[in-house]
């Protein structure tokens, strides 16, 4: 269903966004989607700022599903150190791998990308900015654009598209997603950046497709970042 969406992605897709915008869930689900289409997909964890709720915590689960995960190894995975795996460069340089990058939030997190700016410039990549319009400081287009600017400045890389990931956690309804889409569309008009897709939890996929069909692709999300009391 989302095949069209994946066809439009470049060989390397970098997800950035504000703190708590849902980059990790979007990145994990995108990488799994690419893998299921038969691509040699690798998910790269570049989150150096938030030691909780990041990709490496579900690494084992993802690897059991067949996805390659690149993140700091062993005991370093629990450290709040700005440590990056040497394998990251390999993903960028190997033309056979489809890479999905999960970058830490805000400009502070985007700094880690600067390390790879030079080798990225010669390759086919896209940097998508994930937006949750229910989060503080990204509820209005002006705040979102300020954040895009600061992330571009910190990473030295230009954002090439937008992702609407507007949600209220467990209280997300279709209205939440549609309100978010209208905010993200305004950002698109103001910046000229395309809205690449809208991400919704799986049980809202059909409704979202019906309401937004034709205007945006829809990516259904399975939740990986869970609190200890969620099943």
């Amino acid at each position: 269903m989302a095949g069209k969406l994946f066809d439009r992605l470049k060989r390397i897709t970098i997800f950035t966004g504000s703190l708590g915008s849902g980059k990790t869930e979007v990145a994990v689900n995108t990488a799994l989607g690419l893998m299921r289409l038969g691509k040699k997909a690798a998910l790269v964890d570049l989150d150096i700022i938030n030691p909780y709720f990041r990709t490496r915590l579900v690494r084992k689960q993802l690897e059991e599903m067949g996805l390659r995960v690149v993140s700091p190894e062993g005991r370093f995975s629990f450290a709040d150190l700005p440590a990056l795996s040497p394998a990251v460069k390999g993903v960028i340089e190997n033309g056979e791998i489809t890479g999905v990058f999960d970058v830490g939030g805000d400009d502070a997190g985007a700094v880690a990308l600067g390390r790879y700016r030079d080798i990225l410039q010669d390759r086919e990549f896209g940097m998508l900015f994930v937006i949750n319009a229910c989060r503080p400081y990204t509820r209005e287009p002006e705040g979102i654009i300020r954040n895009i600017d600061s992330i571009q400045e910190a990473s030295g890389i230009k954002v090439s598209g937008l992702v609407n990931n507007t949600n209220l956690g467990g209280e997300t309804g279709l209205d939440t997603v549609l309100d978010g889409f209208s905010t993200v569309s305004r950002v698109s008009e103001m910046t000229g950046l395309p809205v690449c897709f809208t991400a919704v939890k799986r049980d809202l996929e059909e409704k979202a497709l019906k309401a937004l069909g034709g205007k945006t692709d829809v990516l259904a999300l399975d939740k990986f970042m869970k609190t200890p009391w969620e099943g």
């Binding site: 708590g20 229910c134 989060r135 503080p136 209220l168 956690g169 209280e171």
Partner: peptide, 15 residues
Amino acid sequence: MAKILMKGNEAIGEG
């Protein structure tokens, strides 16, 4: 009233 999705640490600050 607005519904906002917040981290606990942010909520301490806003509170």
